[in-house]
Amino acid sequence: MYSILGVIGTIIIGFIVSLWLPGLERKLIHARVQQRIGPPISSPGIMAPLKFFFKQTIMPYSPLPRLYNSLPLIGLLSVLFIFLFTVPETYQLGAFASIVAIVGFLKIEEVIYVFMGSLSKSVMSLRMPFPDLAKGAKHPNVQRSFLEDISAMRAFRLIAFGSFPLYIALFVPAVISGSISLGDIVAYQQVHGPILFSAAGVIGAIVFFIGYMILLNEYPFVILKAKADVIEGPYMEYAAKWRALVYIMRGFLMFTLATLFSVLFLGVPPSIFTWGILVNILVAVLFPMLMASFSAFAPIFTFKQFYPVTFGATILGVVALLAAFI
C-alpha cells in the first residue's frame, strides 16, 4: 500500500513538473535569446492543453480516424510506463525495470510517428481544392502523396538511425555496473558514486543529451516536423483534446528522459519519500533549458547534416562503451 502510494505520488509530482517544462523552454530561453517577451510561463504546457480540452473535437481526415486519435494516448502510456519503471518501488518487477524494457517502450513512442504520419491526410497538400491536374499541367500521371507521408518515411528513417545515440548512451551505465537492471545500476552508483563522474560517464552523458534532442524532435533535429516542408508533420490533423494529449505527451517525455538520466548517470531514482526527487526535478528543468540554448542557435538539419551528426554521436557512444569496458 505504502509503495503504491509512493508510485502514484511520484507520477503526480512528475506530471505536474512536466507541465511547466515547455513553458520554461520557450519563455526563459527561446524568448530571452530572441529578445522578445515570449508567452506566459504556464501557457505552452498548462493553459494551451487546458484550452484544447474545452474545444470542439473535429474528426481528423484520416482513413482510420479513431486509431489516429488514440495514438497520442498510446504514446503517453508508453512514456508513463518508462517513468513508472524508473521509480524505485517498481524495481522488484525485474525484467520490466531494465534498460531493455525501456528501449522497447521508447521504440513504441518512435513507431507511433510512422502511424501518425501515414494516417494523417490534412488539407495542407493534396486535399487543398486546387486544380493541380488541369490541362497544361506538368506530369499529370505521377503518383501523388500527402505531406504527412514524407513525415512517416522520415520517422521510419529516424527509427533506423536517429535513436542510435540515445540507445548506446543507455547501455553505458549498464556496462559499467555490469547489469541491465535499473535497481542494480542505482545500487552500483550508491556504492561507487555517480557514473557521470567517470570518463565513460561524461562521454555517455553528452551522447545521451544528443539522443534526447533527437528523440524530442527539437531544433536542429526537427526534420520529422520541419516547418520548411512538412509543417507539423504527423501532428497536423490533431485537434482539441487529442492535440492537448500530444502536448502533454511531449512535456512528460521531457521529464521522463531527464529522470532516466538521473537514474542511469547520477544514481538518483525519483521517489517522493526522498529528497532525491529534487535532483530529478533539477535535471528535468536543466535539460530543456540546455536544449533550448542549443536549439535557439541552430537551423533545421536536412539529412545531409543529420547523418554526419548522428554518425558522430554514435561513434562517440561507442567510444563511451569502450571506455566503460576498460
Binding site: M128, F130, R144, L147
Partner: peptide, 10 residues
Amino acid sequence: TEITMGTVHS
C-alpha cells in the same frame, strides 16, 4: 511521387 504544398504553408 508528387508532393504538393500550398496555397497555405508555414
